[in-house]
């Protein structure tokens, strides 16, 4: 599987604070990858690094086989729809399409016009007067009609109402189906990503906590509940992600490739949201081999 993004010990420091540190992961090509994490986890920093808007403080990042932002060929391969989807307020919708056409060698004008028409945007409207949803759609149109290999979207739907959010994601998915482009999009809301993503990267406190194919992650994580017991007595192949205990009961989220055979457990699956929350709550530094450093005892 070829990777559309490869990060090796990637780090970015602003003055004294590390917004991102020691991130090593890959994002496969041909997938829609969700980047999830709480606000301030470093999602924007990571995406801006991938788009070449920022340069790493340490480590390396490779996008579509090149250094982000390095020359026109690399810029043509990567589309970036920045947070709050900026557009030129004084330029019209048609001007924006002309901007795209003049500045991008691979511009698909027919596609852009078709999209604008279908969205019902008036080409002579100034972009400053568009609603948030329309502005996001215009920015997405510029990103798609550029025909990039990888489209990066930074919190594209955060500012949109539910209807606009839905329409935006529909259009994005349609473009993915039509042109086979890879997508990385971030959100602090898991619900936005649940349907559209098939690959996931969880970022917490400037570090990557989890990365993998969504199906695989859901299939290998289980919620176990049963009589109270010490997590240290679990089989070695079951990694505990979260654990909570009452006097009589223990509830765990574990990761394992093997089936869970212990009849004492009631085993249930996890939704994406449960899965992400389990990792968000996981204390920093809990290694892949280790038990959780802290468990909740009541």
């Amino acid at each position: 599987m070829s990777a559309v993004l490869r990060a090796r010990h990637l780090g970015k420091r602003y003055k004294q604070r590390w917004a991102l540190s020691d991130c090593t992961f890959e994002v496969p090509a041909g997938h829609v990858t969700g980047l999830v994490g709480p606000n301030g986890a470093g999602k924007s920093t990571l995406l801006n690094l991938a788009a070449g808007m920022l340069t790493p403080t340490s480590g390396t990042i490779e996008v579509c086989g090149g250094v982000p932002g390095d020359g026109p060929a690399q810029l043509a391969k990567v589309g970036f729809v920045a947070q709050d989807t900026p557009v030129y307020a004084s330029l019209t919708v048609a001007d924006h399409l002309r901007l795209g056409a003049r500045l991008n060698p691979g511009w698909d004008d027919a596609l852009a016009r078709r999209r604008i028409e279908r969205l019902g945007l008036d080409p002579d409207q100034r972009a400053g007067r568009l609603s948030g949803g329309q502005r996001a759609q215009l920015a997405l149109t510029l990103g798609i009609a550029k025909r990039p290999e990888l489209l990066i979207l930074d919190e594209p739907v955060a500012a949109l109402d539910p209807l606009a959010r839905r329409e935006f994601l529909q259009d994005l998915m349609e473009a993915v189906a039509e042109h086979g482009l890879s997508v990385i999009l971030s959100s602090h809301l898991v619900a936005d990503l649940e349907r559209v993503c098939d690959h996931l990267v969880v970022l917490v406190a400037s570090q990557v906590r989890l990365a993998g194919a969504l199906d695989e992650l859901l299939a290998t994580h289980h919620r176990l509940s049963g009589p109270r017991r010490d997590v240290a007595t679990l089989p070695a192949d079951q990694e505990v992600i979260s654990a909570s205990h009452t006097d009589r009961q223990t509830t765990l989220v574990v990761r394992t490739e093997a089936p869970i055979l212990d009849p004492a457990w009631t085993v249930s699956g996890l939704t994406l949201e449960d899965l992400v929350l389990a990792y968000l709550a996981r204390p920093a530094g809990a290694g892949s081999a280790g038990r959780p450093a802290l468990t909740v005892l009541r």
């Binding site: 026109p72 810029l75 970036f80 920045a82 900026p86 030129y88 901007l99 991008n104 060698p105």
Partner: peptide, 17 residues
């Protein structure tokens, strides 16, 4: 200030140009 540099610097034209 308006954030439009993030739009225009991600088209197929380098910042230098």
């Amino acid at each position: 200030e308006t954030g439009t540099h993030r739009l225009v610097w991600n088209q197929g034209v380098t910042r230098t140009r």
